[in-house]
Amino acid sequence: MSESDFEKGADAPRDDDVELLAQDADTEAPELEAPPAGPPATVPSTSTDVASSRISVVSEPVARTDDEEFQWHTGTKHSVEGVEDAIEFLDVHKAFGRNRVLRGLNLGIPENRISMILGPSGTGKSVCIKHMVGLLYPDQGDILVHGESVPNMVDDELFDMRRKFGVLFQDGALFGSMNLYDNVAFPLRQHTDRGEEEIAEIVNARLREVGLGEANEMMPNELSGGMRKRAGFARALVLDPDIVLFDEPDSGLDPVRTALLCELIKEIHEENGGAYVVITHDIASARRVAEFIAVLWRGRIVESGPAADLFASENPFVRQFLSGESQGPLGME
């Protein structure tokens, strides 16, 4: 960034100055740092100023206090009337080495609703899902599924608890050594005493639902990414689980299929009920199917609540994210 960029914002200091000052004088730094430090309400007006808006994108200071970093995280939870939480996160912290991914996550996923977890790429949505099924353990805090603490379960309890779940992993996670049919039939064969005919009926119905009725015999490596996603989707639902976790079911699909998939999720949910958790980046999908939305950023919930409340939210981060604008608290970092 050249000197001239700063001329308009006369009192805006150079970015390296800000960092230096921020390091040795924490008290002074917030005054010097024009854009992000202001109260939330003033931001929309300052963001029209060319110079300062650029600063907020390019040189967001690295060392931040929790107050600044979490200034948009009201953690407000607009509760859903008369519904209990199927899954609860209680002040969960999780770090991979120095990378602190979850930083005091408090989240409740309501029973019998389709919930969506939204958030920028790399904020820990997939990590969050892995905590729900006990694939990762929190460094601190607790996760409750139907009131039972997942991290404190012994192995056998954990395996029993997991049978409540149907999970679609981000990359599908189909078994590479089995063809599509066997992949979808696998949970039925392992956990039920159904005969092959009955299994065939269920599996073929599920595969047709996702438009893979013809691809029965194909191996996962012969499928496109979107086809693998859809097959994983079919496999996750084959046991009619109580809790369903979908990690980006719609990524890699064309717009029409995405819309159809959303319809399918709604239909199946109406039939089976249960808590559905869908992670997505697609706001249109969120508008279509979400009944409950939680926005995750920097390892905490910014805001969560019924979809209508969130789409009407005053929170600048939520507004920016749900409308997909480039201007606002979230930059490329």
């Binding site: 099924v133 992993f169 996670a173 189909l174 078994f175």
Partner: peptide, 14 residues
Amino acid sequence: ISDEIDALEVMGIN
């Protein structure tokens, strides 16, 4: 690395 082992675990299989 392709999460297949996680998928097995999640299906309640050791």
